[in-house]
Nucleic acid binder design. Structure first.
Lengths: 350, 350
DNA sequence: ATGGGTTGTGCAAACGATTGAAATTTTTAA
DNA sequence: TTAAAAATTTCAATCGTTTGCACAACCCAT
């Protein structure tokens, strides 16, 4: 192999007959160094393609410009959008992102954290698994003075900044829209009680009904365990076969809504004439299905951006105790599944 | 902040009254070191939670156990599946993955490569952008003795191992299946000529028609530029409105197929009775739409695994000049869009 | 006891860049 | 002319770990 030995400061110093420290400072235009020397060194470095040895610099400075990022699931439209935003923003600021996934399994999450801590990331971005409660593995980061920023799925047990979506409001606006469209018997297929996002959305749903004088029937609220399409299908069946079927279904997420759509189509129930359907998250497929699925956009890309910027901020300020909450607004995206008109334009409320 | 100073070998040596080198060797059970000493040092290290400073080790050994991974687009079902496989496999082998995206823009790709090279990854996994041809930025890796493995979208200008999908055969089997289902006038919405995968698929399509004595009409082959849903919609419209409309459409990818489905549904053309539709890639949405979209699974997860294993292999063997080709088999996934029966089971040919 | 092997341990030099403090040279001012 | 000040440059330690080599201690067979 070629593997040419890399040029080091020592080489430059020897060739130019100066000391290593002068070479080092010259390259960073240190005010102590004479203009002439700076020019000389820089020219030489340029000509011979000197690149500082990152490993050495990182070791010396005890940092890597790498950030860890852990999500429950990588193959997931929302999370991959967040990652995309995180990576682009990190790159702009000279940081790299190390990605890992927990598969919603605590043990995997702990493992991923350990590996990242060991590989010396400068900070961590994490959306915790459903199984995570206390998060001792995250405290290990803080104890080493490495900041952590939580996003989307968070725990309050940890004193870190959190970037979240205004689930309550997004949900509220979605249901308000349904009501505005004339739907009166609105069901909700929700997620697990222990998961904060799910609870917030359920609360937004309830509040909207309350504020508009609609009845809140417990039998119209169904709880998913896994948030799978099949659950949407099954609950929809249950709802539609009940004595008092709803005229609209608001789903915890688009995937569940897909199951709902599938059932309704199979039974030739008209959407939205007979039953309106509202999703959440605005996955790619929401715009592809027919009719288009109304949904709530969570601005995943922006979430990734904000989280990274916050993390870099903490790193720069050696700030570890900070529990600021950054809440992103949601966008209601109205499509055919909730409007009889063929309007599939983006509509933003508020 | 707490930020307790970390325990180092020096500390251990001082406390135990031995030398740093002995401590170092004891921890790795070097045969030169006496059993007693090893026990002593290990016990102390254990008790005080000694963790070697990765930065120092990496610097000393000139490696990081980090691998770079660059894809054209992160928010993309296939690529995120590949990444998922890559990350899981890397983790199992003690490596981390640094992810970046090129957005199919050469300049971005070059930038991403530079950053990764600078941050000292031990090797690179890349699926090149549409704009990449020569890949001088990739040669920089090889020149530094850092191995590169290409996957999915590859260039032959570079002497590296390549992990690809047997596009030709996958396409061939897909079209063969259509023929077996009785379709005779099969159209193909293909990708750009310069992109290898697209060409392979188009060739598989043609070969299948040829081998079964079907006519190959140029007017039935349409070329996408961007591989967007809208293109599928538009080309489908063109095809169906032509004098001699096809009875089946084989699409370069599922997203394009979605556009096709959309048009057909709008025109109330029965799928698959009037027109069969076949996608490629087996995205999540292929199983969600109604009827289910038949597609060709590319085993993205496995591709990620194989690519990482190959890369680690190269790293371990200091092997940089190697252009082995690892070709993965595809799976034909048959769903409702190509079969009149309600069979949506997974069927594997060959 | 003495030379030749083991066996176990320590010394010190790397790795490449950074940085406080000391040393040198140049400039300024009295 | 010369001391003080300013401008440059160099020295040397440091970051934490690894590793070739020297050294010491011990045992055994002459």
């Amino acid at each position: 192999m070629t593997e040419k030995r890399k040029l080091t400061l020592k080489d430059i110093a020897r060739e130019l007959g100066i000391s290593i420290s002068t070479a080092s400072r010259a390259l960073k235009e240190h005010p102590d160094i004479a203009e002439d020397t700076i020019r000389l060194v820089k020219a030489y470095a340029e000509k011979h393609h000197y690149v500082p040895n990152t490993l050495a610099v990182n070791f010396r400075k005890n940092r890597t410009f790498n950030l860890g990022l852990i999500v429950p699931e990588l193959v997931h439209h929302f999370f991959s959008t967040v990652i995309s935003g995180a990576i682009d923003t990190a790159k702009k600021n000279g940081y790299n992102i190390l990605v890992s996934q927990s598969n919603d399994i605590l043990a995997d999450e702990v493992m991923a954290c350990r590996t990242m801590l060991a590989s010396s990331v400068d900070g961590l971005l994490i959306s915790i698994s459903n199984e995570t409660v206390e998060g001792v593995h995250l405290k290990e980061f803080l104890e080493e003075g490495k900041p952590v920023v939580q996003f989307d799925k968070i725990t309050d047990h940890l004193n870190t900044p959190k970037v979240i979506v205004d689930d309550f409001n997004g949900s509220y606006m979605a249901v308000k829209h349904l009501i505005g469209q004339g739907f009166r018997k609105i069901a909700h297929i929700r997620g697990r009680t222990e998961v904060k996002n799910a609870s917030e959305r359920a609360m937004g749903y309830k509040q909207a009904l309350l504020d508009h004088g609609l009845e809140l029937r417990e039998e119209w609220v169904k709880g998913c365990k896994l948030i799978h399409e099949q659950e949407g299908y099954d609950f929809c069946k249950e709802l539609m076969e009940s004595k008092n079927p709803p005229d609209a279904i608001f789903c915890i997420t688009d995937l569940v809504a897909m199951g709902v759509l599938k059932y309704l189509k199979e039974k030739s129930i008209q959407i939205p004439e007979q039953v309106g359907v509202m999703g959440f998250s605005n996955w790619k497929l929401a715009e592809i299905v027919n009719p288009g699925l109304s949904s709530v956009d969570q601005h995943g890309y922006e979430m990734g951006q904000k989280a990274v910027l916050k993390l870099i901020d903490l790193i720069k300020n050696h700030d570890v105790e900070n529990d600021e909450i950054i809440e992103l607004k949601t966008n209601l995206i109205i499509r055919g599944s909730t409007t009889s008109t063929k309007n599939s334009d983006k509509v933003t409320l508020q």
